[in-house]
């Protein structure tokens, strides 16, 4: 069965390597993707910050398109898109008043039957396949960064434990890398303020990365293009205000791709501001941290 794919705007521009690596890795793992035809932007933070109806309607359009296409499930690799699509699904199911307002706007039948999935849940379901095919990324200590939109609000995203999630660590463990135990994995990266209040984003990113580094991480794994850009693109600015971080930020798909020994170029590993090149061969610079237990 084919899996619906909602790349979202970022994967078509700033986070092209996320799109590339995902497609490459999923092909290697035998998962067929069908892109939602003629999808539109989920509305992101600007829609819900200014007009709730618009925010739900924009995402609902994409769910309706997927339904029209006969897709049972849509995977959104961007945490923000995932969150907005899941919110739309939740609101359309629970707020009959708003659902009645929005349904006619969609200009096509909509029965709210498409499940929404994030990339971590997808990989979590593939851990056995990954473990069977991978060459272990031994001696690589990785901080799994969830950010906010993957796990919150719990009743909408219905994914893992909102305070002590373990899914991403499970995927990382399946690649043979070591997930480190650290504190800031659920803190916000600054998301939508990246352009309009860069200083805040730099402050938050610095706190997150400093904590990851202090707990022995050699790289940070993310599952969201916004988190990625705020931690990768802004890292130079973070370093201007304190000691160097030099932490490569990898998409989860890239890490899996590395374990599957896929071509680094196909994974877009050369596209980051902080180069992950050193990670591919270098042994641990510091002693491996004890693996995070599944309780966190």
């Amino acid at each position: 069965m084919t899996l619906g794919y909602f790349p979202g705007c970022s994967l078509h521009s700033g986070a092209k390597e996320y799109d590339l690596s995902l497609r490459a890795v999923l092909q290697a793992l035998g998962v067929e993707l069908t892109e939602v035809r003629d999808w539109s932007c989920c509305g992101a933070s600007s829609a819900h910050a200014t007009n709730h109806t618009l925010a739900v309607a924009l995402s609902a359009r994409n769910l309706a398109l997927a339904e029209e296409q006969g897709l049972a499930k849509v995977m959104a690799p961007c945490a923000a898109c995932f969150n907005r699509l899941a919110t739309a699904r939740h609101v359309m199911a629970h707020d009959e008043g708003l659902a009645t307002t929005i349904r006619p706007m969609l200009t096509r039948p909509f029965n709210n039957q498409v499940e929404v999935q994030n990339v971590v849940a997808l990989f979590k379901g593939l851990t056995e396949v990954i473990a069977a095919k991978m060459t272990p990324l031994s001696h690589l200590n990785v901080a799994c960064y969830y950010g906010c939109l993957l796990v919150r609000p719990p009743e909408v995203v219905a994914f893992d434990d909102p305070e002590m999630p373990t899914s991403m660590e499970a995927v990382v463990a399946a690649t043979g890398a070591t997930p480190v135990s650290w504190s800031k994995r659920l803190e916000c990266c600054g998301a939508g303020l990246s352009l309009s209040r860069t200083a805040s984003v730099v402050r938050m990113g610095r706190e997150i990365l400093a904590d990851a580094k202090a707990h022995g991480a050699q790289a940070v794994v993310v599952a969201c293009p916004m988190c990625h850009s705020n931690l990768d693109l802004r890292q130079a600015a973070m370093q201007r205000r304190g000691e160097p971080l030099d932490l490569p930020i990898l998409f989860l798909s890239q890490l899996v791709g590395m374990a599957l020994k896929l071509d680094p170029e196909a994974l877009g590993l050369g596209r980051h501001f902080v180069s992950p090149a050193a990670l591919q061969l270098a042994p641990a610079l510091i002693a491996p941290q004890p693996r995070a237990s599944l309780q966190g």
Binding site: S13, D38, S40, C41, S46, L54, L58, S196
Partner: peptide
Amino acid sequence: LKQRAFHQAFLHQIKSHGRVFEL
């Protein structure tokens, strides 16, 4: 001003193109 400008510019992108054109 800055947050307003961002949200307006963002929504403008969606309204004009259906998607956000980052540049």
